[in-house]
């Protein structure tokens, strides 16, 4: 059987367009006087930072706040996960009591990380509403009834494949790659 090549799902030009579109979609629904962005650690917070930077350009008057939320301690696979789970920095400088929150993650797959993220978020107050923004939605692989409100791109993939989001800050270029197997 021919081995399938790793495939670039989103090249850099399209990546920039998608970020821009997501920022505009957020503005369509939020004026950011009562809305905060919360990125899920470790990889969702990068997307949240990028969106925050773009929102600040688009809405110079608004005070767009961005938190980093770590859901490690709230996961449901703590004792069954193959590898130990190490926590990341939790950097929430504000309470979300009475606020609208847009939870941000890079790839939505089974939905379990978002479930843990919702629990972790409640430790910082009771938000009025929570929406979900993701760069990649891997359809047909959900294990929980969780659906995103803002989606960069839908992807149909099989479970063994792995979607890797690369960022200019870490990898030198913004792009999304589909790997045929999960990297070790």
């Amino acid at each position: 059987m021919l081995e399938m090549q790793n495939q670039v799902l989103i090249p850099p030009p399209q990546f920039a367009l998608i970020l821009d579109r997501l920022a505009h979609q957020l503005i369509e629904h939020h004026d950011f006087s009562e809305t905060d962005l919360v990125g899920l650690q470790p990889r969702g917070s990068r997307l949240a930072e990028r969106l925050t930077a773009r929102l600040k350009e688009l809405l110079p008057e608004a005070n767009v706040r961005c938190g980093k939320l770590d859901a490690t301690f709230f996961r449901d696979d703590f004792r069954t996960h193959a590898k130990p789970l190490s926590p990341n920095v939790n950097d929430m400088e504000f309470d979300v009591e009475g606020r609208h929150v847009v939870l941000v993650d890079d790839v939505l797959f089974t939905g379990r990380t978002i479930r843990a993220g919702l629990d972790a978020l409640l430790a910082h107050g009771r938000p009025n509403s929570v929406a979900l923004a993701v760069l990649i939605d891997r359809r047909f692989s959900r294990e929980l009834p969780i659906e995103p409100n803002y989606i960069g791109k839908h992807i149909d993939s099989i479970g063994a494949q792995h979607v890797k989001v690369e960022w200019a800050e870490e990898h030198g270029v913004d792009q999304v790659i589909l790997l045929n197997e999960k990297p070790q």
């Binding site: 301690f73 004792r79 309470d95 430790a123």
Partner: peptide, 23 residues
């Protein structure tokens, strides 16, 4: 390093996480 993250948990409005709930 792990304690640093738990210290952050202890300074939140809700100072509790469910990690050991079946323990």
């Amino acid at each position: 390093a792990t304690a640093t993250e738990f210290k952050d948990v202890l300074n939140r409005p809700i100072k509790k996480v469910p990690s050991l709930r079946d323990f």
